[in-house]
Design a protein around this nucleic acid. Structure first.
Lengths: 324, 324
DNA sequence: CTGAAAGCGCTTACAG
DNA sequence: CTGAAAGCGCTTACAG
């Protein structure tokens, strides 16, 4: 016995109709229940035929007819970043809860290309994670929601977390521990709200905003930043790191250099990924409300409405800041 | 200016044909280049019309006609498990390299349901990750490849890593460090090849196969196992852990209990996820050839052929075993 | 409550 | 090299 039988002719609605002795319309009516009344006896015959024949509707035909594929697109920089992986997981769950399948596309070849592919595939909407250029969003006939976005984009729905407030809170927490120097690890260029939050919080305490250790959002970037931090002649007693992935790299470098956390350097991170709980020491981190963000974004896409929504973050206290 | 314009009528092939002053067939011919000759002048007119109109082919219509969606399905227990996330990432890349989109489905509601959905959606094939019941594979008309599978399944393509050999190698490495007691952390029930590899390797050295610390494949499971390990009155000097996620949980518990790794307990893990490199201490781990496994599986699905292929593993040496 | 028929947007023999 | 036309498998007014 061979479990799969490629090459076998697909059974169609016509086969079911023939087997049940009804018209193909009735098969549709009983399968898409609600639209039309079907007598119980007829319904039973149809369902039996479906079962016996192992009939499975052709989604492409349905999509062509009704113009909806019951698919949600997700454009993501990559699933290897812990934060994005968790986001993808939530997206898959949320999509499934709405009866939608998730088509995952990397933005490797550019956002415009990814969106073009998804639009071709008639997805009912797409969630875009990460930086998005408005230009790439033009000319699409499907609703888009920008997730993990930092601010309003004209005419497009956007959902983001309060990075500025979260960063300020993180720095203030470190300040509350008595630290008089709080460094920043993260992208130095650009206008990241976390960088701004750090700058403002430090300034409000009458302190200098330094050192600023440049790093991209990867673990490898965090590792390099950690090496630089460890070898600083006048190492700060604490740092705010702008993502958990960076923190994980940073921790490795610090361990290798025998710099103690939080003893020598206290850390507060940003993202609130599950990974943060399993580091050593476990990371105190600013948690973004991921599930809620995804829920809102899917809602915006299914029931299109533009505008930017910013959700509050929450500081999750663990060992890396020195609280325990 | 509004970047997205939902509600705008989709432009179809007919619009392009009209704009270019050709028949719809010619539009197809120039877009699906190769099938038929189209004069350069005509082609240019068509392409210009496509550009001007912003035409995007309807994938559902194409799929209905030719019976292929250029989509690959991936059934995965979840993307939160690091190993699965990396596998999904590879799958997305490999699919893209073949011009295919990846439809990700969780096996949350059962494998049969997931496969049914994917079959309905006319995916060209599906990669199934994790344990698969042959019964669930029956009656499918699309090619399936089982990834991360442990042995041949009748009539279905399967790709796996040599877990037995990898586990033996791991244990032998620990034995080579002089350990006379090598414990096992992982699922105790069932017939996991890693458990067998551990048992045989330890027996071959004339030692007792103990302790066996039961744990599921999650980080939480590893954490619990770590707590039990830490509190063992006669703690072994080393353990082989059957997955990286478990090892990460185990490390946390050991750190909390101030048990030193590798000093008090040396560890060799299994999977070779990128995460293993960023733990503290970095994990010596048996690496599965993920990229190769995915490449093979996609190949099997695109050019169906049953049979089981087992790939060799490789021991990646880092600090947790005591080598450094 | 049920059926005949049009049409969704493509591709592809077939004819010219 | 180009076009008219059938047909993929559905859904859904429309008529009965």
């Amino acid at each position: 016995m061979s479990p799969t039988q490629p090459g076998r002719r697909r059974v169609t609605r016509a086969d079911v109709a023939r087997h049940a002795g009804v018209s193909t319309a009735v098969v549709s009516y009983t399968l898409n229940e609600g639209a039309k009344k079907v007598s119980d006896a007829t319904r039973a015959r149809v369902l039996e035929a479906v079962r016996v024949l192992g009939y499975r509707p052709n989604a492409a035909a349905r999509a062509l007819k009704i113009g909806s594929t019951a698919q949600l697109g997700l454009v993501i920089p990559g699933v290897l970043n812990r934060f994005f992986a968790e986001l993808a997981d939530h997206a898959e769950r949320e999509a499934a809860a709405h009866g939608l399948a998730l088509v995952v596309t990397s933005a490797r070849d550019g956002l415009a290309a990814a969106l073009g592919h998804l639009a071709s595939r008639q997805v009912d909407g797409v969630l875009v994670v990460g930086r998005a250029d408005v230009a790439d969003l033009g000319g699409l006939e499907i609703p888009v929601a920008l997730l993990d976005q930092v601010r309003a984009v004209n005419g497009v729905a956007g959902i983001g977390a309060d990075r500025y407030g979260g960063a300020r809170h993180a720095v203030e927490h470190l300040l509350g521990h008595g630290h008089r120097r709080v460094g920043f690890v993260g992208p130095a260029g650009g206008s990241d709200d976390r960088l701004r939050g750090w700058t403002d919080a430090v300034a409000a305490a009458g302190l200098a905003a330094e050192p600023l250790i440049d790093s991209d959002f990867t673990r490898a970037g965090g590792y390099e930043a950690g090496r630089r931090l460890a070898s600083l002649p006048d190492r700060p007693s604490s740092v705010f790191v702008s993502s958990d992935d960076q923190s994980i790299g940073l921790l490795l470098a610090l361990h290798e250099a025998a710099v103690r956390v939080p003893g020598d350097v206290a850390i507060v991170s940003f993202d609130g990924s599950q990974e943060a709980a399993y580091c050593w020491p476990p990371l105190t981190t600013v948690a973004q409300p991921l599930a809620e963000m995804v829920r809102l974004a899917v809602g915006r896409v299914l029931d299109p409405s533009p505008g930017y929504v910013e959700l509050p973050t929450e500081l999750v206290v663990r060992r890396s800041c020195g609280c325990r």
